[in-house]
Amino acid sequence: MSLSPTDPKTKTKADAKLETTADTRVISIAHSPDSDDAFMFYGLATNKVRVPGYKFHHTLKDIETLNHRAIEDPFFDVSAISFGAYPYMQSEYALMACGGSVGDGYGPIIVSQKPFTPDEVRKVRIAVPGELTTAYLALKLFAPEVETTNVQFQEIIPAVLAGHFDAGLLIHEGQLTYAANGLKKVLDLGNWWREQTGLPLPLGGNAIRRSLGEEAMNITTHAVRDSIQHALDHREEALSYAMQFAGDIEPSLANRFVGMYVNERTLNYGEDGREAIRLLYEMGYDRGVIAQKTKVDFIG
């Protein structure tokens, strides 16, 4: 799904002139259609936030598709990614210092129909939303021995309800809707991570292509931060925009979910947020979940 950053019906003469100027640099941005991503990119996608000499083109794909694309074919200049995937794209991309989804004492949730204890769930088969997701990385740090199967994230709840899996690992809005489907929470991995490390759990971020060059990387990162700030300053309008991509989720739940993952930490990770990112990679590598060491470079 592609999303133009401007509405042709409201395009001004100045916009048209900018688009035809030879000096205009087009930046391709890819992110998920989930309500938190759509919310934070509202300013840029609707042309509320502009940068002279730059035009931003948005493509919407699910996060696991974006993870694989950034690793296998680093086409997009900016891509939303899972932190669990970043080690495998670090030669092509750096991390933006903004745009992160951070669970501060909360995060991906293991759910089941049966009242498993955290120790019992280590021994069952769990449906996971992809081995490049940070949720999977956190799960394997919690239980390295656990058996997993990849399932599209939106299919995990139905698969657990149908008895195809003993438990499921939920990301996105499923973290808020599982109880309404009759499932029980076994463990919140964001809370588990907080108990283990005293730190928030960084889940998703924005990666920016190194080949853009230092100037364009910094300008683009500041534009994304301005878009996030614009959404926070115009919450009602940004949430209304994000709802068109949110599927059947209730507006109140979408608002709650956005509040969980688009906030002050999205503007800036903070020192503890940056420490958490580095620790996540150190632990992942030391325990054999991540295949290579990760050097973290923050832009902006």
Rank of each mutant, 00 (worst) to 15 (best):
V121G: 08
V121F: 06
K123G: 06
K123W: 05
K123N: 14
V124H: 10
R125D: 11
A127G: 09
V128L: 09
G130V: 04
G130E: 02
G130S: 09
E131T: 14
L132K: 12
L132Q: 09
L132W: 03
T134I: 06
Y136Q: 06
L137T: 13
A138C: 10
A138Q: 10
K140I: 00
P144M: 04
E145S: 15
V146N: 04
V146I: 05
T149V: 11
T149S: 12
Q152K: 13
Q152M: 12
F153I: 09
F153A: 10
F153T: 08
Q154G: 04
Q154Y: 14
Q154M: 09
E155L: 07
E155T: 01
I156L: 01
P158R: 00
V160W: 00
A162V: 02
H164E: 15
D166E: 15
A167Y: 06
L170V: 02
L170M: 05
I171Y: 09
I171P: 00
I171A: 12
H172P: 01
E173Y: 12
E173S: 12
G174Y: 04
G174A: 09
G174L: 11
G174E: 05
T177S: 15
T177N: 12
Y178L: 05
Y178F: 15
Y178P: 12
A179C: 11
A179I: 11
G182H: 07
G182L: 10
K184L: 14
K184I: 15
K184G: 11
K185M: 15
V186H: 10
L187D: 10
D188Q: 03
L189P: 09
N191Y: 15
W192P: 06
W192R: 03
W193E: 08
W193F: 15
W193I: 03
R194W: 14
R194F: 14
E195A: 15
Q196H: 13
Q196T: 13
T197Q: 09
L199G: 08
P200Y: 00
P200F: 01
P202T: 01
L203K: 03
L203V: 07
L203E: 12
L203Q: 12
A207T: 11
I208L: 07
R210Q: 07
S211N: 08
S211Q: 07
S211I: 08
L212A: 04
G213W: 00
E214G: 04
A216T: 07
A216K: 05
M217Q: 13
N218S: 05
I219D: 05
T220D: 01
T221P: 01
T221N: 03
H222M: 09
A223T: 02
